[in-house]
Design a protein around this nucleic acid. Structure first.
Lengths: 213, 213
DNA sequence: TAGATTGTTAATCGATTAACAATC
DNA sequence: TAGATTGTTAATCGATTAACAATC
């Protein structure tokens, strides 16, 4: 089945829509118009309607959108109607933080294992999961259906590990290492480059200072 | 001084340029053409030249770009030619991870304090900095010139804290809480919404599955 | 000088916004 | 039915790519 190319710009906005719809749901709001959502979120109503219409008509003329229905549909589009098993590679502070983050579990991301090359970390408990040595990773991947590998290790290690991960069935990499990974077609990569984000912040601080002068 | 509106698209690419230029520098490469950089980074040479020319001519016809010079210039544009003091609010795993991340220090981001409301975390050491109670935050901000607050606390706490931060001189917020913060003009916010990023990953996994069918 | 490669203008492409007919 | 609001087409805006003259 071919989904006519939805732009990454649109996809990137979907999680935010989902967040606001979730809040409306929690507040017991049943229906919302593109205009109301526009005011709430600070984007144009036109963009909201265009975005939703990429996936077919979710609304009803004269009424607006049913919050519950829209929430469910966007969840499905984002692939949140199923479960994903993930392992974390790198049991340092960041790896542990992600392992402990319960909200992922709520969205269907199941924390199955965590690995490190440092023997001192082996055996440490991260939300009920014991850290294993990285040497046991291949075996573990072969015997468990893991979808996602979360890389919270330095860049050299990350680059070297990609082949092993892919050969053993990993289909997606959530990459926190500061490097662009080279993966075969069909393997998804999502980068979280924290220092890039911090640089954007410092750009905006210093640009503001320059403009003030 | 007014810098003619550089688009966020361009700014967003600068840290990546910087990373590649840093690697070239490390490898002792002196000059690079937009064509070489294009091959290396997987973007068009045309885009590279357009991007750089937003800030004036960094290159030389017939020669290309001097790696060292270009690196320095992009650093300056990104505001990396000065230091920023930051505090972390929230001493959980994520906050500790960010406090321990030495690369930030290398770029001029100085870790000055870390705070938590949990008394059990108070006194804990994070890379030589002792966790303080959140009640001491205001005092600390008044007596120290802190530029950036890093928010690694749940969204309710983050929303409530914004006014305090701004009133006490914080100029920028690096926000890891899953909420859109409302700040006065002139205060910079950069969001890292990890769950949004993870949803983009699951979208791509499930889209790939749909296309395969 | 000849060759290489930038800086920059023009052309194209894609994304956002505006407008309005369709319809609940 | 009348009013509201979507779905969708058209207009605008911005970003990317192509082309080439300027120049090192």
């Amino acid at each position: 089945m071919q989904e006519k190319g939805i732009s990454q710009a649109v996809i990137g906005r979907l999680p935010r829509y989902l967040r606001y719809l979730g809040e409306l749901k929690e507040n017991g709001v049943e229906r919302v118009s593109s205009q109301e959502l526009s005011t709430l979120m600070g984007v144009t109503a036109s963009q909201i309607r265009q975005d939703f219409n990429n996936f077919g008509g979710f609304g009803q003329q004269g009424y607006g959108y049913n919050v519950d229905f829209l929430f469910t549909e966007i969840s499905k589009i984002l692939g949140l109607d199923r479960e994903y098993n993930f392992v974390i590679i790198g049991a340092g502070n960041l790896g542990s933080a992600l392992g402990n983050y319960l909200n992922f579990e709520r969205r269907g991301f199941i924390f199955k294992g965590i690995f490190d090359k440092n023997p001192e970390l082996v055996g440490k408990d991260v939300r009920g999961v014991k850290v294993k040595h990285i040497n046991d990773l291949e075996d573990f991947l072969r015997n468990n259906a893991i979808d996602i590998a979360v890389l919270t290790i330095p860049k050299t290690g990350a680059t070297l590990l990609v082949d092993t991960l892919v050969e053993n069935g990993i289909r997606a990499i959530w990459n926190f290492a500061h490097v662009d990974l080279d993966v075969p077609e069909g393997v998804q990569v999502e980068n979280v480059h924290l220092s890039d984000s911090l640089m954007k912040l410092s750009y905006n601080i210093s640009r503001y200072d320059r403009e003030k002068k």
